[in-house]
């Protein structure tokens, strides 16, 4: 990427303007309150950016923003949510060269980077289409014996904390965020440590897609430090953990018991596979509400 390449000393070329990578919280791009960072290097060892090492406090701030954003996001019409997801796909497609370049900087081969972006865009389109259909497929009118009209339909679980897939910086991220938000949930996501640049650049895509602030919040930092905080927060309703480290999985599931969170562990390392998109991913983060209404004169 032209802009983030360091200018070689002594060359006559113009000085590049480097991008500062920050967190994405409440529709804004703050630095971590902790002031901590790590230097992200490409495969050749060239420093590319300073990446925020988010703290517990950053996570808690993000949860506050997410909780605030949740009711109005859930209340948006299914049509509108679908359009916003489709808009995210449009924006991502539009910035394809930037993402391909950035993924390559982070070590992906050219072909793999192209494929990663293509699948991510298509996955967003896939979930955009579900926005006004999963309710129909997974709801029911229940033929109760008494004189009542009785129906059950899915509603969002609420605030979801997510540890995004480590191996797949873009498709993995999109694959966990899209089914959550299309179902009216809001999320706080810890980006891949290996591909942090893409996650923050993706938040710029979200930011220009009419997605209200606070619906998706993205942090960079370390799993080791944050996995506990992501799962023991009492105002988080569900946790999605992507990975297969037994210690982390145990922490996620144990901490969930503090307030009966719904923990979901996805162990796949092939996020590009078609099997990783499914309306059941949407339903993982839905609650079924049953309503009884009398029938009478």
């Amino acid at each position: 990427m032209e802009t983030s390449k360091k200018n070689k000393a002594g060359s006559a070329a113009r000085i590049g303007v480097l991008k500062t990578y920050k967190l994405y919280v409440d529709g804004k791009f703050p630095r971590t309150e902790s002031g901590r960072y790590f230097i992200f290097k490409d495969t050749k060892g060239t420093a590319l950016a300073n990446i925020c090492v988010a703290s517990r406090k950053d996570f808690r701030d993000a949860v506050v923003a997410a909780r605030k954003a949740q009711p109005s996001w859930a209340a948006r019409s299914a049509y509108n949510k679908g359009q916003i997801l489709y808009r995210i796909a449009e924006m991502l497609e539009d910035r394809r060269p930037q993402f391909v370049a950035e993924l390559q900087q982070q070590g992906l081969a050219a072909k793999a980077a192209e494929e990663e972006v293509s699948v991510a865009v298509d996955r967003l389109v896939y979930y955009a289409g579900w926005s006004d259909k999963y309710q129909q497929v997974f709801s029911a009118v229940n033929p109760v014996e008494s004189s009542h009209f009785n129906f059950s339909l899915p509603e969002p679980t609420g605030v979801v904390s997510m540890i995004a897939p480590e191996e797949s910086g873009l498709v993995g991220l999109v694959s966990v965020i899209a089914p959550a938000i299309v179902g009216g949930n809001v999320v706080v996501v810890l980006a891949s440590e290996q591909y942090p640049l893409t996650a923050i650049t993706f938040s710029e895509v979200l930011h220009t897609s009419d997605l209200p602030g606070g619906v998706v919040n993205i942090l960079t930092g370390t799993r080791k430090e944050l996995v506990g905080h992501f799962t023991n927060h009492m105002d988080v309703n569900a946790t999605v953990y992507c990975g297969s480290e037994a210690g982390h999985i145990k922490t996620v599931e144990e901490n969930s018991a503090l307030n009966v969170k719904r923990p979901f562990v996805y162990t796949t390392d092939n996020w590009k596979s078609e099997e990783m998109q499914s309306p059941y991913r949407i339903m993982d983060l839905q609650e079924i509400k049953t309503t009884w209404h009398p029938i009478g004169k």
Partner: peptide, 24 residues
């Protein structure tokens, strides 16, 4: 909440899903 009754209460039926949100 997972089950809501309008102008009635404590009705149950095998066809009608029952269960809770949050810590329920």
């Amino acid at each position: 909440a997972g089950v809501v009754w309008a102008n009635t209460y404590n009705k149950f039926d095998p066809t009608s899903p029952f269960g809770g949100y949050k810590e329920s």
